[in-house]
Write a protein that binds this DNA or RNA. Structure first.
Length: 869
DNA sequence: CACGAAACGT
């Protein structure tokens, strides 16, 4: 195990669905790949690159998806640019199946423009039939009669296909089915029947009726006209566009097994399905590769779908490569290309690049539209740059671009998150005025916004309003309600929402379970949390990294790692898992969830309850880690922070080393830095530390500061105080905590206690150098600790007390401000005098308990046990 | 073929 640290750990892959794109597939293109990985020293620059850029699938510069694709192109399909004989016959199905085209038809028809200017393949009789169908075909019999009336005049599959599409445009899925059945009964020619089937499948797919699409397909197969590339492609697309990506891929495989050759449309549909379904990046590469090998030339839509795959996973570098590849291949780029590419950049946090690309659009004669702007607005908001988000939005308004529901929802989400509810109300009114109705996304954003601010009454009110407006709640709605109510301690309401969820027939997903588990964790009901973890697995819902992070964090928080050999602690749920294994009957899980709510509501156990179970719990947490490995759940930076925090709560090196060992299994680089600094091999690991910090800094400040806090706390806790200080200074330099210090003020409110203490020393040393350079200090000096908002226990002032003890301990002349208990103050002259005292420097300078000059040796965790505490 | 909503950390 030790020697096979998984290479797939990604610090930056914080989205659980985001699979790290390590190209298991790529060694074909890069035979050296595996060789390289195994033999590389642990912390090469190569590893760094793979961590820093989730879009780079391997340490190889040549193995980015696009260049992998390019390599495949170059080595396996030299005829890429020419039409290979393997290429399936070019079809115009792509155009034929386009819902947009038919929509355009409708508008043109309705504008009364002469039909001859449209490349319509249907006859005018079909138009007439449609008008009749709209007028008289309201019910099944009516439509049957209309169809019978026109039967003799309607001309083949093209006319019927036209009707199918028009019914589709009107959302009439039952009419689509009826019309298809009517038409196919009257058609003898197999290929015409096939056309009808493909059209019906595609249209039903667009309407979200995958089951109906499937039944049409099955019927087509049974009746001998369904075994065509077109029907399969339509079914793939129907599944893909409705999120049944695995099913889409299955259909794709079946199709090939039946001897059919996928064409451009098929591949486009499969790749598109992958993007929607969040399929592993490698799988997509593999399919794209297969496409090239089969001589099917990718077109604009293929690339747009590939870009969408990147956007989904945040693989912005791959997107960049593919975007450039399009230019190289002479493939036209359209507004969709740009919007998708921009979205990939935004999702990858590359806002400045995105802005640059957007600025170039007009020079390419592609004008940014409402989608472009919404994408950018959302990107800036997600990057925490709300000012810029709002200013982009105002730009869009200024340009007179018509706002759509999505753009309003995006804006609404921003104001909800900012807690600016006056704006939220105003926007809702504006939407009303424009006749844009709130949809489920709007309501979910509102619910989340009010909930996050603790405005549970408003949340309840909005939920009622939602139901009154007959907007059907979805799983996300219930998840939000349950999560928010639980966080607010309103377990009764949470339970009610859960009951409604059950009544609606929706099934809890991993997010909902994770929210419940987190609620249990936050109330120190870790055992219940772990047993719910097993419960969800039994229900067929796989936990992900977020689920585990909650639990690991709770262990770190509530476990005391003191050895306790009474041996009779409550048994660990992990260990009795098998006893409850056969509990899969439907409904049992639900009643158990109800039981957990009851447990939460009873408040018998407060968040301060600490069990002292020692070894038992160590075994339990090790079991949790083991399971995480078994399920191949990739940790992220939150996991690392949670493990480091747990280390800070260990009373012995031994326990901490056990946890660090877990860290090592997850990620050698993070382990290397944490362990190296802890052991005093700072000089050896500092370069690695720098590259690690570079990556951490790529993330948002909350995530980054959490990691810095956790690492520093751990070092401080185990006496590596100089090391801790170097880490916080690095964090300060990278602005992990904003505006930590000025000459007159040190703001510690975002810092953990170890980090804050190390920072106090650093700041005072800095002030001291000002004094020794002969400069005046500001009249008033302050140290802010806040009110414990960021403390593990809200309002307990742990940080304040730690700083107070620290200042007292070193005799620093600061006192608590009278009006603000989170603020220590002093005057410049008093502090300057103290700094000039002979003993002061000595108490300010921090030392490490352990330090080793650079020796370059490999240091094992077992070294820990050899050293004194 | 493009844009929007949820869980972990602070």
């Amino acid at each position: 195990m030790a020697s096979s640290t998984p290479p797939h750990c990604s610090l930056t892959a914080s989205k659980p669905y985001q699979n790290h794109p390590y190209p298991q597939k790529n060694h074909r293109q890069n035979p050296n790949h595996h060789h390289h990985h195994r033999n590389n020293p642990k912390w090469t620059a190569a590893h760094k690159v793979s961590l820093a850029n989730p879009s780079l699938p391997s340490p190889h510069s040549a193995a980015s998806p696009a260049s992998a694709a390019a390599a495949a192109t170059a080595t396996q399909n030299p005829t890429f640019t020419s039409l290979s004989p393997l290429n399936a016959p070019k079809s115009d199905l792509g155009r034929d199946f386009s819902g947009r085209r038919s929509t355009r038809f409708v508008s043109k028809v309705h504008l009364g423009r002469p039909k001859t200017t449209i490349s319509a393949r249907h006859t005018s009789v079909a138009d007439e039939a449609l008008q009749h169908a709209i007028q008289y075909g309201k019910d099944e019999n009516g439509l049957e009669n209309v169809l019978l009336t026109f039967e003799s005049k309607l001309c083949g599959a093209d006319d019927y296909t036209f009707l199918l599409r028009e019914f589709g445009n009107r959302g009439e899925h039952l009419k689509v089915v009826q019309c298809f059945e009517f038409a196919v009964r009257r058609e003898r020619r197999k290929n015409e029947q096939g056309k009808l089937a493909s059209a019906a499948i595609s249209i039903l797919g667009r309407l979200g009726k995958v089951d109906l699409a499937r039944s049409v397909f099955d019927r087509a197969l049974r009746e001998g006209y369904g075994n065509t590339v077109y029907a399969y492609s339509a079914l793939i697309s129907a599944n893909g566009r409705n999120g049944y990506c695995n099913e889409a891929i299955k259909v794709f495989e079946t199709m090939k097994n039946n001897g059919l050759k996928p064409n451009l449309v098929t591949f486009n549909a499969v790749i598109d399905a992958c993007g929607k379904g969040g399929v592993e990046f490698n799988k997509v590469l593999w399919i794209f590769d297969e496409m090239l090998k089969n001589g099917v030339q990718p077109d604009r839509i293929t690339y747009n779908s590939l870009l969408a795959v990147c956007s989904r996973g945040g693989f912005w570098e791959a997107a960049k490569n593919w975007f450039n590849e399009m230019v190289d291949r002479g493939i036209d780029q359209d507004i969709v290309t740009y919007n998708t590419f921009l979205d990939a950049l935004c999702k990858g946090g590359q806002m400045d690049s995105a802005f640059e690309i957007m600025s170039q659009m007009p020079t390419k004669n592609i004008m940014p539209n409402v989608v472009t702007y919404s994408t950018m607005v959302d990107g800036y908001a997600k990057a925490g740059r709300c000012d810029e988000a709002l200013s982009i939005f105002n730009n869009m308004r200024f340009l007179g671009i018509d706002l759509d529901r999505v753009s309003y929802n995006t804006l609404l989400t921003i104001y909800s998150k900012l807690g600016n509810f006056q704006e939220v109300v105003d926007i809702c009114e504006e939407m009303d005025d424009c006749g844009i109705e709130k949809d489920v996304v709007t309501y979910n954003a509102l619910l989340g916004g009010y909930g996050k601010q603790g405005k549970y009454h408003d949340m309840t009110r909005v939920y009622k309003e939602m139901k009154a407006a007959q907007v059907c709640p979805n799983l996300l709605t219930y998840s939000t309600l349950i999560d928010m109510y639980s966080k607010g301690g309103l377990y009764r309401e949470a339970m009610d929402a859960f009951k409604e969820l059950k009544q609606s027939g929706l099934k809890p997903d991993v997010v909902l379970y994770s929210a419940l588990i987190d609620a249990l964790c936050k109330n120190a009901l870790v055992e219940s949390a772990v047993s719910l973890l097993h419960e969800m697995t039994r229900e067929g819902i796989s936990p992900n990294v977020v689920t585990y992070n909650s639990i690991i964090d709770a262990f770190g928080r509530y476990m005391s790692f003191e050895a306790d050999f009474d041996g009779n602690g409550p048994s660990c749920p992990m260990l009795i898992e098998d006893l409850t294994e056969n509990n899969t009957a439907d409904g049992k899980g639900d009643s158990r969830i109800m039981k957990y709510f009851g447990q939460l509501a009873s408040e018998r156990v407060g968040p301060l309850k600490k069990d002292s179970r020692g070894r038992q719990e160590i075994l339990c947490i090790l079991g949790v880690f083991k399971k995480m490995h078994e399920l191949e759940i990739k940790p992220n930076v939150v996991t690392f922070s949670a493990i480091l925090n747990a280390c800070s709560r260990c009373n012995s090196f031994e326990d901490a080393s056990m946890l660090l060992e877990e860290l090592r299994m997850f990620d050698n680089q993070v382990y290397g830095v944490a362990h190296g600094l802890l052991m005093g091999y700072r000089e050896t690991v500092w370069v690695q530390a720098q590259s690690l910090f570079d990556e951490v800094r790529q993330m948002d400040t909350a995530t980054a500061s959490a990691f810095y806090n956790a690492l520093t706390d751990m070092l401080w806790h185990f006496g590596q105080r100089h090391g801790a200080q170097l880490v916080v200074l690095d964090g300060k330099r990278r602005q992990v905590w904003d505006n930590v210090w000025s000459d007159s003020c040190l703001d510690l409110h975002l810092m953990s206690s170890g980090a804050a203490q190390a920072m106090v020393h650093a700041w005072l040393l800095n002030i001291r150098s000002i004094v020794y350079e002969g400069h005046e200090l500001p009249k008033l000096l302050s140290i802010l600790t806040g009110w414990g908002k960021h403390s593990k226990v809200v309002g307990d002032g742990a940080l304040r007390r730690a700083i107070e003890a620290l200042l007292t301990g070193m005799g620093a002349p600061f006192r608590l401000a009278k009006c603000n208990i989170g603020r220590f103050i002093s005057t410049g002259s008093v502090v300057a005098a103290w700094l000039r005292e002979s003993g002061t420097l000595k108490v300010l300078v921090l030392q490490d308990d352990r330090s080793h000059p650079a020796s370059g040796g490999i240091h094992k965790i077992s070294d820990l046990q050899m050293l004194p505490l």
